[in-house]
Nucleic acid binder design. Structure first.
Lengths: 156, 156
DNA sequence: TATAATATTGTAATCATTACAAAATTGATA
DNA sequence: TATCAATTTTGTAATGATTACAATATTATA
């Protein structure tokens, strides 16, 4: 999905379209998530952008991520390991989490008949599908990528 | 699902069947989760069982919950709010989380054609469906249950 | 340019969970 | 039944992601 790179200006327009002022930090965070589909956590986004913006604070990353997700521009991906990961493509899809290395992969869903029954008046605003297991690399005994200790200490 | 109450002895047998020694704490935790489908977090299980077992430690609750979930006897339910909730019925079903009050409700899924495509050799061990939104009580302006501050501070 | 609104920063909390070692309990065996 | 080893339980101290909050900087506007 999405093959063409977006310019900072285009990303700024995306932000404006959602009523968010296109600050440098917001554009860079959005751009990073659009161009790097690794589902990073806040800390690893911070570490990467710090190279670009030496005055960056981690609080700004948290603020920005909260803003973007509240506007529906990014997705929060839960891990159950005490950290939240982020996905720049909020279009409907699932996520596979490798419990060995912590990698998260997008899963293309073909859920044609997934009807949710009686929710007794609950208003559903978000629906997500999570898969857990062992990814191909970890499953093949190919532990070259460091074996991130089950409870995914990584984040990108 | 599951209408009859299980005796401690029966729960002990369930544990033994999974190769887990049926200690008092394990039986009580399992029994609490079977009889109270409120998807509590570790702390609220601790607070409840403390009345029964005055010497109980919270570490034991965490140990027990980890043991039970690793044996597939209970389910970890993610919230994205920094806490894990637990479900005594590991049979396939989804969960609805009210982002207002933090309540978690079971959702009966009828996902007949939910086929997951090419996972490139990933071995899936767990599949779960999460819904988020506003529950009926919170949606009706009926804030009698205390409005647990969005990021669900509660846990039962 | 002055002013108000908004963004960003830095530091100090918060809080669920884990690490770890000591103490208690259990089960099997002599 | 006494002993010993294995397992369970406990208590306390870390860990680590996230948030609270107040101060500072920046931006947009009058």
């Amino acid at each position: 999905m999405e093959l063409t790179l977006k310019t900072p200006k285009e990303i700024g327009d995306m932000l404006k379209a959602r009523g968010v002022k296109p600050s440098v930090i917001r554009i860079k965070v959005m751009q990073y998530l659009l161009e790097n589909r690794v589902h990073p956590n806040a800390d690893s986004i911070y570490k990467v952008l710090l190279k670009d913006i030496p005055t960056l604070s981690k609080t700004s990353i948290y603020n920005t991520l909260k803003t973007l997700s509240s506007k529906g521009m990014i997705l929060e991906v839960m891990t159950g390991a005490g950290e939240i990961r982020f996905d720049g493509y909020p279009a409907r899809h699932g996520h596979f989490l490798c419990v060995e290395c912590g990698k998260i992969m997008d899963v293309n869903l073909e859920c044609t008949a997934c009807k949710i029954p009686d929710l007794n008046g609950c208003k559903v605003t978000e629906q997500s599908i999570y898969l857990k297991g062992i990814c191909a690399e970890c499953g093949s005994g190919d532990k070259k990528n460091g074996k991130k200790s089950g409870k995914s200490k990584q984040g990108a």
